[in-house]
Simulated assay, not measured.
Amino acid sequence: MALADEPTQQGLLSRNAASSQSAPDAGSTGVQSLLDKGLSFLGIKYRFGGNGPENGGFDCSGLVRRVFGDAMGLNLPRTAADMAKLGDKVNRNELKPGDLVFFNTMRRSFSHVGIYLGDNRFLHAPSKGSVVRVEEIDGRYWQKRFNGARRLLPEANAAVVNAINPAITAAQKQQGLTPSAAAALSQSPLLQSYMNNPPSDGKPQN
């Protein structure tokens, strides 16, 4: 069961769409590829020590390692704690899409990792019995356990521009969405399908 203060998966994905699917400028192409790759794993089962669907699922660091490897060609360490030693430290109020976000979920620092998507949301593989999903970083559970963030991609500083056209405006009016969310949903069958079948929750772990 989800924590009382956590938004639904449908709400998270609708609002996250602006960050993950809006049209980037040339400098943010790498970040966009990273986010697209990460979102392609939505709904994959959690498996401790897992490195991908072919191995039965992901754990948190396995997901991050796979996404950065496939999208950027980076060979990251296997554990969240070792990943936390890389890149540049980032303040919470300076987070950009593509940054790694770390949490203390096992009574030790940097025991859980996810990928920041923008708009206070991150992608991760939470725990046994759950699946890869999007979470609200300001939710009570995650806010208390936030450990810090690291930036591995310089492109994360690039600006992201919303693409709005008449078709998207029509979708906005029909569904009651913000323009940027309507833009994303109109372009993303994967997100629409996932929103119609939100996953069950589980307690976070590495």
Results as ranks from 00 to 15, higher is better:
M1V: 11
A2D: 13
A2G: 06
A2T: 09
A4D: 15
D5Q: 08
E6M: 11
P7M: 10
T8E: 04
Q9G: 08
Q9P: 06
S14K: 04
S14P: 03
A17L: 13
S19F: 14
S20I: 14
Q21Y: 03
Q21G: 00
A23V: 13
P24I: 05
G30Y: 09
G30W: 02
Q32C: 07
Q32I: 01
L34C: 03
L35H: 05
D36S: 05
F41C: 06
G43F: 02
I44K: 08
G49Q: 00
G50K: 07
N55A: 10
F58A: 08
D59I: 12
S61G: 05
G62T: 04
L63A: 02
D70T: 10
A71Y: 02
N75D: 07
N75R: 03
P77S: 02
A80S: 15
D82C: 07
D82P: 13
K85N: 05
G87C: 11
K89E: 08
V90H: 08
R92F: 10
E94R: 07
E94Y: 07
D99K: 11
L100Y: 14
L100W: 13
V101N: 15
F103C: 02
R107P: 07
F110G: 04
S111I: 12
G114P: 01
I115F: 09
G118I: 01
D119F: 11
F122K: 02
H124M: 09
S127V: 08
G129S: 05
S130N: 10
V131C: 01
V132L: 13
R133M: 13
E135F: 08
E135T: 01
E136K: 04
I137V: 06
D138P: 11
W142Y: 11
F146E: 15
F146V: 13
N147E: 02
R151Q: 13
E155W: 07
E155S: 03
N157Q: 07
N157R: 00
V161T: 12
A163Y: 03
N165Q: 06
N165M: 00
P166D: 12
A167P: 03
A170S: 00
Q172W: 01
Q175M: 05
L177F: 02
L177T: 00
A181P: 13
Y194I: 01
N197F: 06
S200A: 14
G202N: 11
Q205C: 15
Q205E: 14
N206D: 15
